[in-house]
Structures are given as structure tokens and as C-alpha cells.
Design a protein around this nucleic acid. Structure first.
Lengths: 213, 213, 213, 213
DNA sequence: CATGAATGAGGTTTCATTCAT
DNA sequence: TATGAATGAAACCTCATTCAT
């Protein structure tokens, strides 16, 4: 039993190592510039071993991006889910969620995902959509749910929680993209907090439940 | 006179043709996938002629992107400048500007610029910044100016026009990016109008001059 | 055992084949005119295989020249070493060595070595020196040793065996270069013998041990 | 008359400038590596102007080499002609000629000639011969004449002045080539004098007129 | 299953050379 | 006659991918 399991585990580990190496190299060099030899070297395996696990360089990109997208998406979901029980001070809860989302979106992984998908948008549009489903869209759906429930309970004032959610996220990612120059510059934590505060302020002005803070 | 002008004009035209062809091919295939032979063919010249005008494939990218960025930036600037004399109905003026900006940002040129710069963000960070200076940053600065003057004249309520401008643009580009899936899908004009309307509504809620509409 | 040896042997053979092909093509066309495709074809391998063994076209030149230089140098050394036991008739032994050296220096390999190193003397001066160390300098050192011992045993009359050796070789290579016009013409065996005879005559007049023959 | 001469003179000057530039660039980079653009730049003219004067890159090589060869040959001839009236001390006169020849052969022009002809020996054998006719062969013939006359007047002891001349030159150029490593190293004047002295000593031992010095 | 070796294809770039001015 | 611009050809090198071991 163990004897049969160990190689399977080893195989899975090797697959993980290859995908992680692939994402790292793709993020560093871009898809076309990255060469399979370097990915294999970074994963600590030989080049044909990569082809034993993944059929193609394109598959390598797809799988590694989807894996990274799942991780980022899970983090975003976690940040949004904290709005499930916002407590008395809803703006504070929104600010907390905003800061968490900004930290994720300002991370190197998020920028790499954006860059790699953008670069392939013409050649592999489904990949863009698949990644989007696992990150932005997933986050947006969850946030729409949260905001909808908050509206139902009277804590927010909107009849269109989808647009509200979209704008909440836009007020975060827009300024972040602007400040980071598409990931070229780092955005300091203090600046992230300022963005979050401004976003929450504007969002609350538009969707707050009547009582101005 | 004409006889002396023709060659210079011919040279300029050829340079223009090369840069236009370069942008078209880069936009279609991406930087690495694009090959100089195809650019030359699209420009109607021989391959070495391209190298007579531009030293490098990289220079070809840089020059063609900066040219496109200037064009897009000029359009954006024009849209923003319309806020100089907003008339009595400021929200309507904002809506008009918003629609114009959205139409520009939803265009193929804008998406290509975004994609091509993103893809080279690691290798050529200055290029990202140079393009940004000519498009987003320029637009943002102009909008900041406009909003600041409107605030001075009491038509808007904010002490931080830079953030207001940043958020105005974020409320446009964020949802647009979301709907278009990084340029993968077309965003219909009606949808663009809805985005603009929602953006102006939220913006006005936050920065309107007291009298709620 | 055999099964393990075969692949290594095969690799070595392929490397040998590549280097031999490289030398042949370089000798035929010169360094710049020679193209890697032709070398690969002559070696019976594909072009990238050449690059799998040698990093560069320049490395290809270097390695193939050094290999040929080692071969030529070994032949020259062998000719000189025959002076170790010259027998009673030293001029005859010198003549024998002279003829052997001339035959080597008149060979296509020697001329090719000279041409290829000369052509790269500005760009790759160390290569010139490395080849020289393995051919001329090596021969000169060995001959200096032989002549020095002969002088010690009273069979030659000189206190400067290095110069004697240098002149002995000069009396061979100088006229050979002159007659062959830098390798452009073949020098017949009879002509080689005449050169050798004249060289030995002059050498013996200058360094003979007193008794004229 | 002047009006007709001036352009002709200008044309000749331009041709000279082009040939000089060609030789300089060929000497610096080798034939294949040298590009016509650089030659034109060094000559201070435009590229097509070069082609107006010389039909080919190959003609450029040929003409510039022959010009340089004529110059070097004239210098050698001058050195040899000094043996026409050797005075009482013939070895001293030979030493003087030897030193002069060595200085010429150690010059950058001579080495460049050797390198450039060697490199093209396979492709352009006639060029090698033409250059040789204007340099080494011309010198050898003149020296043969001088030595023949000296032998007739009893100042030298040989019945084969051609071989004597060949060996005299060999005793100079052989050691020079050896020390300079095919022009890679400079050979100091003192070393040149030592080579000349040793050459004359050996030559005189073989061909001196009976009275040993 | 993992690997060293090999390959076919293709890209960027440079160069000698020639028109039109 | 001298030149700026243009071109056809070709070379080096790299890469993704596949056999034998």
C-alpha cells in the first residue's frame, strides 16, 4: 500500500515542483522568452521529464496560471467572506476587506497573472477567461452576494449589488493600477491604506445607509 | 520645391507606414510572436528597410507604442477638456466625458497598448512608464485640473481633486476591464453607457455639490 | 560494460567528427566564409548538434585548430627526437630531420593552421599563441634541447643552442614559405630535398664541429 | 587647364583616400569582418562613392593590398640596394641591410599584408602571388643580384647566389616570425639587432670569402 | 519513469550592392 | 559625380520537441 502510494506522492510532488517552477519562470521572463530548459532547471528535473508531465509549453502555461489563479482567488474570497459578519461598524469592515484585497492585488503573483494573461489575450482568450473566473469574477460574485445581503438587512442602500460590488473593486484596483504603473512600481502599505480609505469613503457616500459618518 | 519635398515626405511616409505596421502586427500577435518580416510586409517595404529606420525590434516596439500612446492620450485629453465649460448640468457633462473616455478605452488601440506594455513590464519598465505618461497619467492630470477648478467654483465638493479624478477614472476603467475581460470581449455601446451612468452616479454622490439629484 | 561504453564512445566519435569537419571546412573556406551548416553537413549531424558540443563558432575554430596543432606538433616532435641518437654522420641525421620537418610543414594541415591563425591574429591573439605553443614553439624547444646536448658532447660547436635551433628551422621554413608562396603552390619532394640539403650545409658551416665535410 | 586638372586631381586624391582607408580597415578587422560602410566612413565619403571608384569589395582588397605591397617592396629594395657599394667591411654592410629589412618586416604594414593575403590564399591565389611579386620576390631578386655580383668580385664565396639570398632572408624572417608570433607581439629594436647579428654571423660562416672573423 | 543527445524550423540581424536624386 | 534609401541573400544561434537508454 505504502509502496504503491509513495511513487504517486512523488509524482504529485514533481508535478507541483514543475508547475511552480513554470510560474516562477513565466513571471520572470514572460511566456515566449521563458524556455523549457530553464523551467526544468528551476524544477530540478530534466527537460523531457517536463514533457512527461505536461504535453506542451502551452499546457505548462495554462496549468501553472490556473494553479496560481486558484490560490489568489482563494485569498480574495477569504477577504470578502469577512464581510459575512461585519459587526456594528460596516465602514470599518469594508475598510478591512479593502485593505486585504489591495494587499493581494499588489502582490507579485497578481501582477504576474495579469501580465501573463494580457500577453496571451489574443492567442488564448479562454485562458484569460478561465483565470478571470478563478480570480476577479469569483471575487466579484462573492462580493455581490455579501453586498446583496447587507442591502437586504438595510445596512447598505442599493438595489443593484452587482454594480456596487463592481465599483467597490474598481475603486481599489483602479487606483492601485495607477499607482503601481501596471506592477512596475511597488505600492507601499501606507499608500494602500490611503487607497482603501478613499475607496470606502466614496463607496459609503454612494451606498451608505443614510446615516453619514 | 515639390521635387525637393517629395523624398523627405516619402521618407516620413515610410517611417509612418513602418510604425503603423509595427503597431498593427504587435497588437495582433504580441511582441515576441511578431516577426519583423511580417511587419515589413505589412508596411510594404523590405526587411532591411525596417532596420534602416529603426535600430532594433525593441526600438520598433518602443516607437510604435509611443506613437499610439500619443494618439490615445490626445483623444483622452480632448474628452477631459470638454469639462472646461460644463454648462449648467454638471452631471450631464461628466456623463458625456465618461462616455467618451469609455469609448476610447474600449477601443482596440487602448487594449493593445495595455497588453503590449504589460507583457514587457519586467523587461522594459521605462517603456511602461513612458506610455503611461502619455495616456493615463496625462489624462489623470488633466482631469485633476478640471475637477480642481470645478471645486474652486463650488460646483464640486472636494479638497482632493487628484483622488477624485483617480476615482472617476477608476469607476470607468475598472468596470470596463471587468466586462471586457482584459479586452477579450467587446463591450457594447449600451453597456458602456450603463457603466458611465453608474460611475457618474457614484461620483456625484461622493463629490456632488450638496444638492442631491 | 560494452553497453555502457558505446554511448560515450559514440559521443566522443561525434565530437571528433565535428572537429574534423570544422577543420576541413575552415581550411577550405576560411573562418568567416565557412558556415556552420556546412560543417554540420560534413560531420553528418544536424546544425544544433554542433552547438550542443561547441558553444560557439569561435569555440569550433579554437578547438579544431588546437586539435590539429597537437597533431602537427607531435609529428614535428617525432622528427626532432630522431636527433637523440644521430649516429656517426651528424649531417646526415640533420638532413633526415630536415626532410621530415619540411614534409610536415609543406602539408596542407600546416598551411591551413598558418592561414587560419594569421587571419585571426588581431581578433584572437591568444589563439595564435596557443597554436604556436603546440607547434613551432614546441618543436623549437625540443630542437634546442637536442642541439644543446650535441654541443655538450662536442658534436656541434655553439654556446647558444636556442639560436642555432631557431636558425635551423628558419633555414627550412623560410625557403619553404618562399617557394610555396604561403601555401599557394605545392613544393615537390625533390625541391624539399634541395631546401633541406642547402639548410644543412649552411647550418653545418656555422655550427659544425670543426671538421669540414 | 586648371579647371580640368583640379577635378582629376580631386578624383585621384579621393581614390587614394579610399584605398588607404580600405587598407587600414582591412588590416584592423580582416577582409570579411571589414564592411564597406566603415571603409567609406574612414575615407570620408559615402558608400556608393566607393563603388564608383572600385567595382567590388574584392577589388578594394586587391588594389589596396597591391598599393601597400608596392610601398613595402620599395622600402625593401632600398635596403638591399645599399649592398651595391658595401665598402671594406662586408659583414657590417650585411648587418646594416639586415637591420633595415627587419625593421620593415616587423612593421604593422608587413604583418597586415601577410595576414590578409594568407587569409585569402585559397580564394584568391593570384593575389597572394601578385603581392609576393611586389615584396618578397622583388627583394629576393634584388638580393640575388647583389650577392651574385659580390661573388663575382670575390667578396663572397658561393656559386648559387639565389640560394644564398634565400637563406639570408630566411635567417631574418624566420626568427622574426618566431619572436613576433605572426605579428601578435612587438619585437623590440634590440631583439631585431640580435636577430640581424646572428643571421649575418651564420650567413658569413657559410658564404664568407675564406677569411674567418 | 527519467534522461542525455539530437533535430527541424525559424528569427533577428548584417552586408554587399544598386536605384533615383 | 556623389549620395540617401532600399533590397535580396544569407549567417548565427536558440528553441520546442522527440528518440534511445
Amino acid at each position: 500500500m505504502r509502496a504503491a502510494e509513495v511513487p504517486a506522492r512523488g509524482r504529485i510532488d514533481k508535478r507541483q515542483a514543475i508547475l511552480d517552477a513554470a510560474f516562477a519562470v513565466f513571471a520572470r521572463l514572460g511566456y515566449e522568452q521563458a524556455c523549457v530548459r530553464e523551467i526544468a532547471a528551476e524544477a530540478g528535473v530534466a527537460k523531457p521529464t517536463v514533457y512527461n508531465h505536461m504535453s506542451d509549453k502551452e499546457a505548462l502555461l495554462r496549468e501553472s496560471l490556473l494553479l496560481a489563479a486558484d490560490r489568489v482567488g482563494a485569498q480574495c474570497l477569504d477577504a470578502v467572506e469577512r464581510l459575512r459578519d461585519p459587526g456594528a461598524d460596516l465602514p470599518a469592515a469594508l475598510d478591512d476587506t479593502a485593505r486585504r484585497l489591495l494587499r493581494i492585488c499588489a502582490g507579485e503573483t497578481s501582477h504576474a497573472l495579469r501580465r501573463l494573461t494580457s500577453a496571451q489575450a489574443n492567442r488564448l482568450p479562454e485562458l484569460v477567461l478561465d483565470v478571470r473566473d478563478r480570480t476577479g469574477a469569483r471575487t466579484l460574485d462573492a462580493l455581490t452576494d455579501r453586498l446583496g445581503l447587507l442591502a437586504l438587512s438595510g445596512k447598505l442602500s442599493t438595489t443593484d449589488p452587482a454594480t456596487a460590488a463592481e465599483q467597490f473593486l474598481a475603486l481599489l484596483t483602479g487606483p492601485l493600477e495607477n499607482r503601481s504603473a501596471q506592477g512596475t512600481r511597488k505600492v507601499a502599505a501606507a499608500e494602500q491604506r490611503a487607497i482603501a480609505a478613499a475607496a470606502v469613503r466614496t463607496f459609503w457616500a454612494a451606498y451608505g445607509s443614510g446615516d453619514r459618518t
